[in-house]
Amino acid sequence: MKKFISFSLIFLLCATFPFASANDVPPLISDEAGHLTSSEETKLQEKLQGIYDTYGVYAIVFTEEEMSGISAEDSAEDFYNYFFSGKDCIILYIADYDREYALSAFGKKGKDAFSDDELADVEDAILPHLKKDNFSDAIFAFTDEAENILDVYTNGSTGYKIAVISIAIILPFIIALIAMLVQLSKMKTAVKQHYATNYIRPGSMNISRSLNLFLYSVITKKPRPKPSNSSSGSSNSRSGKF
């Protein structure tokens, strides 16, 4: 109930806010815990809007002082379903009293861009700040890392581009060199023979003893790799305490 009232208030605020309603922008920031100053919020709003304009994926910050009886991941999902259902999003949820956080990606593009490895990168970027209670730093670190990941997803990483171009240029010369060496080998056919296989008398091979003696066995086992995130049908998520 508390969650419903909270979302309704946010929705009403957005609906009555002339700028927001004019541009039909859903709430990219919901800082109920009040971690951001108004100037930080303005700066963040511009940045988050810029990310959407550039990459078509919403980066969203949602903070609460206290969790409302559901998990951090469920809180992020509720927020998504209420405001962004069907859209591509990455949501950072922070509940500072419970010291819990969640990173959840929704929509096809959102989930493709933020798979488990990328969510782990975002987590690595925000956790040091959260542990020191530097919430605004954590939020801006989330924004920066999300932007980097979306840039790599959209345009490819610089390292990847260099690697592809380098291989595309070097590989043909390697292929040509190998082909040339193969052709060159045809220019010299006078080579020594190391075997006398042509001179084995047909049917002369006689095996008088052929034993395969079992000595011992060694059995090793290693744990199957398990995904560290919960990836349901609707989202890729990562959550924990800080």
Partner: peptide, 15 residues
């Protein structure tokens, strides 16, 4: 599981 063996072969071959 790796099974270790010792293989013994004896025989003749004509050239």
């Amino acid at each position: 599981k790796t099974d270790f063996y010792k293989l013994l072969r004896s025989g003749s071959l004509g050239f």
